[in-house]
């Protein structure tokens, strides 16, 4: 393999990994606060993509309005998801929450299947993202460069909210102790809703970039990236936001490099990701950045 191809693959890996990381943030935030793997989280990618398509196709909005709008809509779909599927189960055993999450995921997928249909829709790709630049002979689509940059910017914005704002402090308090958080006069349900809003917004941004990268949108498009992002979250240490992004980068790189070095194994890349999950769970269940998580009562 030439250096050129290697560099090309490296940028691809970073780009893919940053997408995993962006989606993994939502898993990790919701897990941190509810100790729940929100399996419907991946489907938010699909929600964002379809919303963006309809914004452009039906309402003839320019992409720079339609995309942010789709991201915001996805954030609110996340809040509704919490209200409908998780809030009624706040005091229920955690396994009920998990089952509800799987149910919510199926509901979103099949709702999209019924309403929109299973035929993949083409995602409109604005010229600005599709351009190809050549850096020292390495040809890269600009989207591949934008993706990790946008991810890092969003990560810093998010860290600012979580560590520097009042609502962020309340979120961190809630991730340790629900009851005492309420005793501070904090409306816990609002804080949880806010957590879903932030995580889902990240998934929305991830969904748009995913659809720009693979411009075929169908009701099940969120399943595999969702699962990969979940693996990234576990790899990074679930509950840890920075860990989620690092886990995403590592997983994306590992996957792309596997494909690059062993092209004949390319069809096993999804299986490879799950092998990583199993290994992490076996040998370091707390992930790279994770601390042992106290079981909340």
């Amino acid at each position: 393999m030439t250096t050129k191809i290697f560099l090309q693959q490296l940028t691809n890996g970073i780009s893919l990994g940053s997408l995993y990381g962006l989606v993994a943030i939502g898993y990790t935030m919701v897990y941190g606060i509810l100790r729940l793997i929100n399996f419907a989280h991946g489907d938010l990618l699909m929600v964002a993509s379809y919303t963006a398509i309809y914004g452009i196709a039906m309402f003839t909005l320019p992409w720079y309005i339609s995309f942010p709008l789709a991201i915001i809509v996805t954030g609110f779909v996340g809040i509704m998801l919490d209200k409908a599927a998780y809030k009624p189960l706040r005091d229920a055993p955690r396994i009920s929450l998990l089952i509800s999450a799987i149910g919510a995921s199926f509901l979103l997928e099949n709702l999209a299947l019924v309403v929109i249909g299973g035929v993949p829709k083409a995602f409109p790709r604005p010229e600005i993202f599709a351009k190809v630049v050549s850096i020292h002979g390495v040809r890269i689509q600009v989207l591949t460069i934008y993706t990790p940059i946008i991810t890092i910017l969003l990560l810093f914005g998010l860290l600012f909210i979580v560590y520097r704002t009042k609502a962020g402090k309340a979120m961190r308090a809630a991730s340790m102790d629900f009851e005492t958080t309420r005793l501070m006069g904090i409306d816990l349900d609002r804080i949880i809703a806010f957590t879903f809003l932030l995580g889902s917004t990240m998934a929305g941004a991830g969904g748009i970039m995913w659809a720009l990268k693979y411009p075929q949108v169908n009701p099940f498009m969120g399943v595999i990236p969702g699962l990969k992002a979940f693996i990234a979250a576990v790899l990074g240490g679930i509950g840890n936001i920075v860990g989620a992004v690092i886990g995403g980068f590592l997983l994306g790189l590992a996957e792309i490099l596997l494909v690059a070095f062993m092209p004949e194994a390319a069809q096993y890349r999804d299986a490879f990701a799950f092998v990583i999950l199993i290994l992490v769970l076996l040998f370091r269940p707390t992930g790279i950045m994770g601390e042992p998580i106290v079981d909340k009562t």
Binding site: K166, K169, A170, R172, A173, M176, D177, E179, T180, T181, L183, M184, G185, I186
Partner: peptide
């Protein structure tokens, strides 16, 4: 209220705990 068992937020600083009291 100062609850039974104190229940300070262990992974937050003293200052952050007080800020939450003043929420």
């Amino acid at each position: 209220i100062s609850p039974e068992g104190r229940r300070v937020f262990p992974n937050l600083t003293v200052m952050e705990n007080l800020e939450l009291g003043a929420y």
